[in-house]
């Protein structure tokens, strides 16, 4: 068997293996975050790893297809990884009462404000831009 045939076989196996892709993404994160820590970057390792993976994808060193299963697993099951952190509310008995209601009110009012401002700003800007582009194309 030639090395080429071996590499094709390896690639085919890697495309099919979710576990191998999960492990590779984990390794990218591990390497990036230890690098970030060693250099003393103020940016979290996850974001450094994201930049590294983007560079790998953009330079065509890694194809999107070869990581699809791993990416889908991480993004699809992400909620599970947050469950232990969210349970920290059990360590805060003060949240079960007036304070909790106040916090809920802040979140509710804040979310409504963010939604109104974001949606209306983007909509106005989008309409202005399409009208602009339209007049430009008419003038040409």
């Amino acid at each position: 068997m030639t090395t080429h045939a071996l590499s094709v076989q390896f690639r085919r196996k890697f495309y099919g293996s979710r576990l191998a892709q999960i492990a590779l993404l984990y390794f990218v994160w591990l390497a990036s975050s230890s690098l970030a820590r060693a250099v003393g970057l103020p940016i979290p390792g996850g974001i450094v790893g994201m930049a590294v993976l983007y560079a790998l994808l953009a330079s065509k060193a890694v194809s999107l297809r070869s990581l699809r299963r791993g990416v889908q697993w991480y993004l699809g099951e992400m909620l599970l990884f947050f469950v232990p952190a969210v349970l920290s509310f059990t360590a805060h008995p003060e949240f079960f009462g007036l304070l909790g209601l106040k916090i809920l009110a802040v979140i509710l009012a804040g979310t409504v404000s963010v939604m109104c401002v974001t949606a209306l700003t983007v909509d106005l800007f989008y309409r202005w831009r399409t009208r602009h582009e339209l007049t430009e194309s008419v003038l040409e």
Binding site: L25, S33, I47, V52, L53
Partner: peptide, 14 residues
């Protein structure tokens, strides 16, 4: 489980 948030962030690049 919380550690896996790191590689999940990396996956956002896709």
């Amino acid at each position: 489980l919380v550690v896996l948030i790191g590689p999940a962030t990396v996956a956002f690049a896709a």
